[in-house]
Nucleic acid binder design. Structure first.
Lengths: 151, 151
DNA sequence: GACTGTATGTCAGGATGCTGACGTGGAGCA
DNA sequence: TGCTCCACGTCAGCATCCTGACATACAGTC
């Protein structure tokens, strides 16, 4: 069987990367006034929706290693945006929760990010939203099929 | 006007990020036997299609800074995959070109990457391919609208 | 009770990519 | 000619995230 090479013009992979880079850039710019990186925002968002989860669990949600998450959490901790108990209530996991300040900042950040998303989707016919999400999900499912390491 | 917050379950941004991470991971794994990173492959692919372009131009094509591209090119240069003149033929740009070895490796890499793309698209109805690309392109266009810095 | 497996937090080191700044070469214009 | 503006290559410093390794705590089995 003859194997085809990549055609740059029609590569879906390139299109995904472009979208990802553009989105990340737009989010960084939007979050800069709040002194938050995209990773930090993602962290707060997850923490807002699933209070009390461990750093490792958080890391998996945000697609970074738990080592990176420790550094990330420390920064948010120093700013008083979240709290962690000094000693683990059970096992080794230290459940993190947003402080009042953290929840307030998350609220601002979430609105800013939602605005970016709306701007991105403005160029898209409204009906295409669900199908785009479905198509992307199908791609992810096909890729992670053989199982994800350390997740 | 009441501004909405992000809903994690329905966020297109998250879907794009997931797809991007999954794709990058799959490509890294596929390219590892060839001792190429995703960035290096992207660099070779561009160079194969546009021989003689400068490092700065290459950097823009691959979404990295020209500083990073210099490091990247040096690695490929040391492996004899491409050539650059010692002195600029005009202006300051040093046009890069693939060597025979570079072209051969690119050929292998391109097939491997195409295979990953096919695997990704296997879970997608065939007709959805073009519309997915179109939708992503529309998103990118809407985001980069105010102009891209240093590009 | 002892052992194994899994999950978490943590430390050390390195790879990668970025921002900022500088010098140089060419194009455009008065 | 002299000046300005821009693009390219390059150096230095820094941030981020990674891999690898280790100790600890719980659940399961025997």
């Amino acid at each position: 069987m003859e194997q085809e090479r990549v055609e740059v013009e029609s590569s879906i992979g390139l299109a995904i990367k472009q979208a990802s880079v553009a989105l990340r850039g737009a989010m960084e710019a939007a979050l800069r006034p709040l002194a938050l990186t995209v990773s930090q925002y993602a962290c707060l968002e997850q923490l807002g929706q699933r209070p009390g989860i461990s750093a490792s669990e958080l890391a998996r949600s945000v697609f970074v290693t738990r080592q990176s998450m420790q550094t990330l959490l420390q920064g948010l901790l120093d700013r008083g945006l979240l709290t962690r108990p000094d000693s683990p209530p059970a096992g080794r996991a230290l459940p993190a929760e947003l402080t009042e300040a953290g929840a307030a900042l998350l609220d601002q950040a979430s609105r800013v990010v939602a605005q970016v998303e709306r701007r991105m989707l403005a160029g898209l016919p409204s009906g295409h939203l669900d199908r785009l999400r479905a198509d992307l999900a199908a791609c992810v499912a096909a890729l992670v099929d053989p199982g994800v390491p350390d997740a």
